[in-house]
């Protein structure tokens, strides 16, 4: 079309190349975007919502009569049932919740509610079970992880987390919640616990019973610090918390330990000289308490919240000794 045109200069070539690069980026962005979609949007209804009891439909306990047809909830609408606490379950790996109310035969005012949480894994179930454990509760043997309080029974069983909660702490209802939990265990079968072997690595000396908790996500408020086991050690009026987390290999454990120390320092912590008794450990004072962080083999571990530096160190030494016995 054109009569004559000048030879393009260097500037033109550069701009041209930049524009072509932008076009390539647009194409790549569009391609990436088309992969991001939610098929459920296009007309399929989430499978786990509505007025059905799901697995609880056939669940019956002698002496208890259902008060309603039960309800089921999926990740989309879990907060319709337990708004405010849904995130705890969603972060751990939640699949569905099934709930149903039952009353003692002939007494509609004496009722209990069954909450059956189906989690993504046994570990996820253990995590929500352990992080809500009521202190001073009576351990049960219905499943490997089960206990009762004055009005309720809680248990983890494979990927299930079950709560049976009564409206009052009367003897009749106390028996009924136990019966319901046992009926569940019988119907479902007892499954392997979700607590990994790490849970048994805490030094037994001074360990508060049933205090081991699995924090599945963003432990201690640090984004990305996942799958951390914690345990409580009462020491007089104060409490020490030991923690450990297995990482893929020792180098990742070291990196994680350094990352956590940086997190503490970034939140107002002051680092003290490393303790001679614990080579490689790092001691941080934060808000008037001592945190000790170290890595041992594939483990990131440490002790938090000690007001007394000596006690903190002593527990850390015990913990490291236990961890060093673990065969790689």
């Amino acid at each position: 079309m054109s009569p004559a045109h000048a030879q393009p200069g260097r500037g033109q070539n550069l701009v041209g190349a930049a524009v072509l690069l932008v076009l390539a980026l647009v194409a790549a962005g569009v391609y990436w975007q088309q992969l991001q979609y939610d098929p459920a949007q296009w007309g399929r209804l989430g499978a786990t919502s509505g007025q059905t009891a799901g697995p609880l439909a056939a669940f019956s306990v002698p002496g208890l009569s259902p008060l309603d047809a039960g309800q089921s909830f999926g990740p989309d609408n879990l907060s319709d049932k337990i708004d405010g606490k849904a995130e705890l379950y969603l972060a751990a790996g939640f699949e569905s919740l099934h709930t149903r109310r039952y009353a003692l035969a002939g007494q509609s005012a004496a009722w209990l509610e069954v909450f059956l949480y189906r989690m993504k894994s046994a570990e996820a179930a253990y995590s929500v079970f352990s992080s809500q454990r009521r202190s001073g509760a009576e351990a049960l043997t219905i499943t490997q992880q089960s206990y009762r309080t004055s009005n309720a029974v809680y248990l983890a069983n494979g990927p299930d987390y079950l709560e049976v909660v009564a409206s009052a702490a009367t003897p009749g209802l106390q028996k009924a919640v136990l019966d319901a939990a046992q009926a569940y265990a019988q119907a479902r079968g007892v499954k392997k616990t979700g607590a990994a072997s790490e849970a048994g690595l805490f030094p037994p000396q001074g360990l508060q019973a049933n205090s081991v908790v699995l924090l599945s996500k963003d432990a201690f408020g640090m984004a990305g610090l996942d799958r951390v086991y914690i345990a409580t050690y009462p020491q007089g009026s104060q409490e020490l918390m030991a923690f450990l987390a297995r990482r893929a290999d020792p180098s990742q454990a070291r990196t994680a330990a350094q990352g956590y120390v940086q997190f503490l320092l970034g939140n107002g912590g002051q680092e003290s000289p490393p303790p001679a008794e614990l080579p490689g450990g790092r001691l941080v004072e934060i808000m008037g308490t001592w945190d000790l962080v170290f890595s041992q083999g594939p483990f990131l571990a440490g002790v938090r919240g000690g007001e007394d530096q000596a006690a903190t160190l002593a527990l850390a030494r015990l913990l490291r000794a236990r961890l060093s016995e673990v065969k790689p």
Partner: peptide, 14 residues
Amino acid sequence: MRIVTVRRISQVFF
């Protein structure tokens, strides 16, 4: 490359 060629590529692309 001439800048008008790049423009035509861009136009056809979009």
